[in-house]
Simulated scan of single mutants.
Amino acid sequence: MKVLVLGGTRFFGVHMVNSLLRKGHHVTIATRGKALDIFGDTVGRIIIERTNPDDLSKAFAKKYFDVVCDNLAYCSNDVKYLLDSLNCGRYVMTSSASVYANQHLNTNESEYDPYSHSLKWCTRQDYPYDEIKRQAECALFKAYSKFQAVAIRFPYVIGEDDYTQRLYFYVEQIIKGNPMRIDNLDEQIGFIGSAEAGNFLSWIAEQEFVGSINSSTIGTISIHEIVNYIEQKTGKRAIYSGEGLEGKYNGQKSFSLDVSRATNLGYDFSELKVWIYDLLDKYIDKAIN
Rank of each mutant, 00 (worst) to 15 (best):
K2L: 08
L4S: 05
L4V: 03
L6D: 00
G7A: 07
G7H: 04
G8I: 01
G8S: 11
F11N: 02
G13Y: 00
G13W: 00
H15V: 00
M16C: 07
V17S: 04
V17L: 02
L20R: 12
L21M: 15
K23L: 05
H26A: 14
V27N: 09
I29E: 13
A30Y: 03
T31L: 11
K34R: 13
A35Y: 07
L36E: 15
D41V: 09
D41G: 11
T42M: 07
T42C: 02
I46C: 05
I47K: 13
D54N: 09
L56D: 00
F60G: 08
F60M: 14
K62Y: 13
K62Q: 14
D66T: 15
C69Y: 11
D70F: 09
N77G: 06
V79W: 13
K80G: 11
L83W: 14
N87H: 11
G89W: 05
G89P: 08
V92N: 07
S95Q: 10
S95W: 01
S96I: 01
S96T: 00
A101F: 13
Q103V: 11
H104E: 01
L105F: 13
T107L: 15
N108Y: 12
E109K: 05
E111R: 14
P114C: 10
S116A: 12
S118R: 14
L119T: 06
K120I: 11
W121F: 15
C122W: 05
Y127G: 04
Y127C: 12
Y129D: 14
A136P: 04
A139F: 12
A139P: 14
F141Q: 02
F141E: 01
K142A: 11
K142I: 09
A143T: 00
A143F: 02
F147Q: 06
A149N: 12
I152R: 01
I152W: 05
I152S: 00
P155N: 12
Y156A: 07
G159W: 00
Y168K: 06
E172M: 03
I174D: 12
G177N: 03
P179C: 02
M180V: 12
L185K: 04
Q188G: 02
Q188R: 10
F191K: 04
F191H: 03
G193C: 00
S194H: 00
F200E: 01
V210W: 08
S212L: 10
T220Q: 09
S222L: 11
E225T: 08
I226V: 14
Y229K: 12
Q232S: 12
R237P: 04
I239G: 14
I239Y: 07
E243K: 10
G244S: 11
E246W: 14
K248S: 07
Y249C: 06
G251T: 02
Q252C: 05
K253T: 12
S260W: 13
S260H: 13
A262I: 03
A262D: 10
N264C: 10
F269G: 04
S270N: 04
E271G: 02
E271H: 06
L272F: 09
V274L: 08
W275H: 03
Y277S: 02
Y277K: 08
L279P: 09
L280Y: 01
D281V: 01
I284E: 00
D285C: 09
I288E: 06
